[in-house]
């Protein structure tokens, strides 16, 4: 099978859906001629023209509000938010308008909108361009949140997002745009709420979102050398979350580590760990371990920034400790 980059996969997904459905359009800063700073949308303006690939001024609340209105009235906008950190600028349009319109209109209006943005540190972009804020929007009922972990997932989830009649926020890891993966030529969609078991194991379940999936896979390889068998699961979407697959795995392995690049406090790791603790409590042989980004503003200093993100070594070390039955948290 051919391998393409995550960037190409997203581009293909958007192009295919724009060809299939003329109500789909792309709007955001530098999406047309510039093709975004990450070159994800390059070439789209040549095929679809400036009516459907729309460059905007630097005014996130404005173009987000415009897109919500367009979605309510029959269009299917894809909003490009250059950095995930700018979510704070579109919170009212996203959380108070897009997420609630279907409910507050008694089901008369839909907001079939995709907000494309990114997450991930270690790009030396400092505290205001390095955050992973997916937990913030996953907290809001009415929004769906997808977190592709490879080019394959990026394409399949983007196509599903565009066809969904609800607002969807899709977070791509900005360090993964050039990472290649096998992606079929023929059309495919990845349904929301279906986790993927990437590796089967016996002793511990490693749950990794977005690029933390690769961290978990690397940790599992290290653990294999030590005779510890790790199962790796990528939830793919955190809202909706495929609880059944995660619980089934943890009931088998009796131990779980949840790894995510958002801040650990009140984060995605906490939510998944809590669900495991509630629903698989009597199957747990060790505390569920959360591993999120360090709870500090992401430092600019490369040496410090690298310390804020979970590494395969740390995941493997935690796995060894819980499999060995170490006392993790004394009463």
């Amino acid at each position: 099978m051919r391998s393409i980059t995550l960037s190409q996969a997203v581009n293909e997904a958007i192009a295919e859906e724009m060809r299939r459905d003329e109500t789909v359009f792309l709007i955001g800063e530098d999406v047309a001629e510039a093709g975004t700073p990450f070159k994800v949308t390059s070439g789209l303006v040549e095929e679809f023209g400036t009516d459907r690939v729309i460059d905007t001024p630097i005014a996130e609340p404005g173009f987000m509000g415009l897109a919500v209105g367009a979605a309510m009235t029959g269009a299917r906008p894809i909003v490009d938010l250059m950095f995930g950190d700018f979510l704070f600028l579109v919170m009212d349009q996203l959380c108070n308008q897009a997420a609630k319109t279907h409910y507050m209109s008694g089901g008369k209006l839909n907001v079939p909108l995709v907000l494309r943005t990114n997450l991930g540190a270690t790009r030396r972009s400092a505290a205001q361009h390095s955050q992973s804020l997916h937990a913030l929007v996953a907290h809001i009922p009415g929004l769906k949140v997808a977190m592709p972990s490879s080019a394959y997932e990026a394409k399949g989830l983007m196509k599903t997002a565009i066809r969904d009649d609800n607002p969807v926020v899709i977070f791509e890891d900005k360090l993964m745009y050039q990472d290649k993966a096998e992606v079929p030529e023929e059309e495919f969609l990845i349904p929301f709420g279906e986790a993927k078991v990437l590796r089967e194991g016996r002793d511990v379940t490693l749950i990794g979102t977005s690029s933390m999936r690769q961290v978990c896979e690397a940790a599992a390889t290290m653990l294999e050398a030590d005779g510890v068998s790790a199962e790796v699961i990528d939830p793919r979407t955190i809202a909706p979350l495929d609880e059944a697959t995660i619980l089934q795995s943890v009931k088998k392995t009796t131990r779980a580590i949840v790894v995510d690049e958002g801040h650990q406090n009140f984060g995605t790791t906490a939510e998944i760990a809590a669900r495991i603790s509630e629903k698989a409590f009597y199957h747990l042989d060790a505390p569920v371990i959360r591993m999120g980004a360090m709870d500090v503003p992401i430092p600019f200093s490369p040496a410090l920034e690298d310390l804020t993100v979970p590494t395969p070594e740390q995941v493997a070390e935690n796995a060894r400790r819980i499999v060995a039955g170490e006392l993790i948290h004394a009463l």
């Binding site: 409590f281 009597y282 747990l284 042989d285 060790a286």
Partner: peptide, 9 residues
């Protein structure tokens, strides 16, 4: 007693 939930069950 410090025991895992699984051990207790």
């Amino acid at each position: 007693i410090l025991a895992s939930p699984l051990a207790k069950r």
